[in-house]
Amino acid sequence: MATTKVIRVLVAKPGLDGHDRGAKVIAHALRDAGMEVIYTGLRQSPEQIAQAALQEDVDVVALSCLSGAHNALFPKVAQLLKEQGMDDVLIIGGGIMPDEDIPFLREKGIADIFTPGTSLKQIVNYIKENVK
């Protein structure tokens, strides 16, 4: 019987930041690229995000944060995912973050960071190429 595998992505807004223009635009683009996008809404704690990722069995967790709290929040999400056995999930991040934070985030398990000016196509392709 034919399988019908579709890439599932959780788009999440960790922390208190309410700017969701980017998250919604990306969610829309991923949907238009044929993916199933689960959106959590605003103000998610790392625990909520990890829980949603687990229940929804997603291939990708895309985190968006513009408040500068990324260094505190992104690694926490990565750690929780790992703890629940989801270390094969692709974690990516986006928002306003200085270049010098990126190596730190990579080291903590965020596969890549996309800052303002990144094209939607670039993100879609990145996901398609990197989902295991």
Partner: peptide, 20 residues
């Protein structure tokens, strides 16, 4: 979406209270 096969699944937004 019948055109792209993608979907937007947004019901969790309204289910915050029970999500954890």
């Amino acid at each position: 979406s019948p055109f792209t096969g993608g979907a937007f699944l947004g019901d969790r937004v309204r289910m915050q209270r029970i999500a954890t």
